[in-house]
Design a protein around this nucleic acid. Structure first.
Length: 226
DNA sequence: CCAGACGTTGTT
DNA sequence: GTCTGG
DNA sequence: CCAGACGTTGTT
DNA sequence: GTCTGG
């Protein structure tokens, strides 16, 4: 699955990568340990252009009676996305991209868990496929939330875990974000494992387990624990 | 028809 | 809101 | 995903 | 064991 990730690059780099425009004054703090229930930087298309904004990770569907459900809805399985009441209608009009430069998975070794960080070999920013929705709180406030889509592992990931986030290749990003596109078949065809050849994995410190730790040490390569 | 769920992961 | 189960 | 809590009553 | 919070 995908329950933690990193986005260490500057807002400047994100703007250049997704908006194709020169950065403004905003500054994006490097994130070494992004966790569910936090606000994350996302890309959506407003009909004219890409926009960067914040979504809380953990989907709260528009019909939910309270927002507690969000902590459970951090991932959506690509294989069943069209069958689930919570997701099937979002695929048409509520698609987003969550930019990342790494994600974490915990490899189970007997009773121990070894955290691993997975990145692109060239260190590039990549796009995780996500869905979002907006929930209206009883007090009238709007809460926009998201869920990251998962799929089966590629050959690199299979050794670590049985799920991985859906990563869109750069040439598929526009198709995914385009609001006018409601071709569900074409959209779901994008939800497949990314090429293992372009990725690498390395062990990191167990300090990444605690969400309070959001420091460069989280992404430092470590000797395998076990 | 109404009531109740609506999710994924991992582990056994 | 929409689907499933009874 | 992992870490950490998991509860009520009454009193201040 | 299971749920909540981050």
């Amino acid at each position: 699955m995908c329950g933690r990730y990193t986005i260490v690059v500057s807002m400047e780099e994100l703007m250049l990568r997704y908006l194709n425009e020169q950065p403004t004054d905003r500054y994006h703090t490097p994130k070494y340990n992004v966790a569910p229930m936090q606000n994350v930087t996302a890309v959506i298309h407003d009909g004219e252009k890409n926009k960067l904004g914040e979504l809380r990770w953990g989907l709260v569907p528009s019909w939910a009676s309270d927002d507690k459900i969000g902590s459970k809805m951090i991932n959506a399985r690509a294989e069943t996305i069209l069958e689930k009441a919570s997701f099937k209608n979002l695929i048409r009009r509520k698609r987003a991209i969550i930019p990342a430069d790494g994600f974490y998975e915990w490899k189970q070794l007997g009773s121990k868990k070894q955290p691993m960080r997975i990145t692109m070999k060239d260190g590039a920013i990549f796009s995780m496929a996500a869905l979002y929705d907006t929930w209206l709180a009883p007090d009238g406030r709007k809460l926009s939330t998201c869920t990251i889509i998962t799929t089966t592992p590629n050959s690199l990931m299979a050794d670590i875990h049985d799920r991985m986030p859906v990563i869109l290749s750069p040439e598929d990003e526009a198709l995914w974000l385009n609001r006018a596109n409601d071709d569900v078949e074409r959209l779901t065809a994008l939800l497949r494992p990314y090429s293992a050849d372009l990725m690498r994995a390395y062990p990191v410190s167990p300090i990444v387990g605690n969400v309070k730790n959001d420091t460069p040490e989280c992404i430092e390569e470590q000797i395998l624990l076990f």
